[in-house]
Amino acid sequence: METFAFYLFSILIVGLFCVTVMSRNILYAMTSLAAGMVLISGLFFLLGADFLGVVQLIVYVGAVMALYAFGMMFFDATGTVKENNTPATTVFLLGGLSAVVLVVIFAAPAIGGNVHALYPTPEGATNPQAVGLVLFTKYLIPFEVAAVMLLVAMIAGIILAGKKMDKSLSRMKDESAVSEKDVK
């Protein structure tokens, strides 16, 4: 049952991400990306990592939604995007890389037997508790650094976007009308 579910999810995920890469339609590309991200959470559920699965679901649903907003602004959603031909060296490099990845994937079961959990789940801890324990003991500094980085990104975003934040949007029109008149 689990094996079947794993292969079903894997085939769907690989297929959907292939569509993301190959499709020239922005709507297909982003929809398959979102669906693939949701299906990855299925893999986490299969592994018994419910908490990580739900986090994957919530984070990527929101993140891809923001991507949609940009897609809506920059592209015609129902048409195809015209692309330039990619240079041969890039194709060669990417092809070689995917071949290496394939070899690693098929070799993975051979080394998979030696993998041990560095921080095994404590007895009796539920899923979120286990994640929290490791996150706030072993990985506290990376966690805090990531938090600081997000804070920096947020402040930078506010500064970039907030030049006219003290003015009301509905009153901004009058001002621009005045400036247009001045130009004339």
């Binding site: 419910d50 908490f51 739900v54 986090v55 679901l57 919530i58 649903v61 539920t126 899923n127 979120p128």
Partner: peptide, 9 residues
């Protein structure tokens, strides 16, 4: 055991 997050997600 993470019911509420699942529902919201």
């Amino acid at each position: 055991d993470i019911g509420i997050l699942f529902v919201l997600g």
